[in-house]
Computed example of a mutant assay.
Amino acid sequence: MIRGIIFDFDGTLIDSYEAIAESLNHVRATFSLPAFAVDQVRPMVGHGLERLIAEAVGPERVEEGIRLFRQSYAQICERRTSILPQVKQTLDTLDGRGYQMAIASNKPSYFARDILKALEMDHLFAEVLGPNDVDRPKPDPEMLEIIIMRIGLSPEEIVYVGDMPLDVEAGRRAGVAVYAVPTGSATREDLLHARPDRLLHRFADLLSILPSLSGAR
């Protein structure tokens, strides 16, 4: 029986693409490169900051690019990020049904925590991990494995919910069930090809799949 839910963050719970694009374009402008449109940035998100910056300005500029990105993003991420449709109500309901919830994201956890606090959702999650907390980012399963250990459940009691084939791979490697939602950068076709255990039509579909646990408040 599922007792714990681990979520990806960007594209699964929140829409932060405009904020990421703005900060990425700040970096590109510093190197005299033209701005990206948000739709160009969207498929670049989710693989970690180093890869994002390398794709945007070149691998030889990653160190300086990361420094510039962090400075910009820290100033705008809270006010330029929004909760995706159906997410807050669904999370509140799942919390009331007794599920332990956590986040495993390739976004640095210090940014994720700040955004969660600004959106008044930080109290819902027992753990929030990012690539700065582990040796290897997703699709390596390390983040998921640490969360599973910390919340005291077995992989068989966990479902991982994400919006990218990378999330499906991470969940598979961690030995947990994986549900995919087409609310981020990947298309439904991409997600179908990745073969999650379930491909949801919308985030709120979780409520029809995950019933109230015995003894839930």
Rank of each mutant, 00 (worst) to 15 (best):
P43R: 10
G65L: 02
G162P: 04
R172E: 11
L68Y: 04
A19Y: 07
I2F: 08
V38P: 04
G215M: 06
N132D: 14
A204T: 09
L206E: 00
N25W: 04
P108R: 13
S16Q: 09
A37T: 08
T90N: 09
L91S: 04
M143V: 11
P196L: 10
R150S: 10
D205T: 11
D167W: 01
R188E: 14
L49F: 03
E55L: 11
D95E: 15
A37M: 08
L84C: 04
L153N: 03
P139M: 09
E60I: 01
A112N: 07
L94D: 04
I147C: 13
R42Q: 09
L124Q: 02
L191S: 05
M1N: 13
I53C: 08
G58N: 09
R172G: 09
P34F: 15
L213K: 03
D197H: 08
I66F: 04
R79S: 15
G4E: 05
S23E: 12
I2R: 03
M143P: 06
T187D: 02
L207I: 05
P43D: 07
R42G: 00
S16L: 11
I147A: 12
Q89I: 13
P196A: 08
E127F: 04
K117M: 12
F9H: 10
V161M: 01
P34A: 15
L49G: 07
L24C: 03
R80C: 13
N25K: 05
I2H: 06
R113M: 09
I209L: 14
R28Y: 03
P59M: 12
I2A: 10
G48A: 07
D135P: 10
I20V: 12
D133W: 13
I20C: 02
C77T: 02
E145S: 14
G96F: 02
Q71R: 10
L33E: 08
S105H: 08
D190R: 00
G175Y: 02
E22P: 02
D8H: 03
R3F: 08
R70P: 01
Y73D: 04
S32R: 15
D140Q: 08
R67T: 15
A102G: 14
A56H: 01
A174K: 11
A102H: 13
Y160I: 06
P108Y: 03
R3L: 09
V57P: 00
R97P: 12
D133R: 13
G162K: 05
S32P: 02
A216M: 07
G58I: 06
E63W: 07
E50P: 00
S72W: 12
T12Y: 00
L199W: 06
I146A: 07
Y179R: 06
T183K: 11
Y99Q: 11
V128D: 04
A126I: 03
P155D: 14
S109L: 02
R67Q: 14
L52Y: 01
M143G: 10
T187E: 02
I53M: 14
D95G: 03
P85N: 13
S72E: 12
R113H: 15
A180K: 00
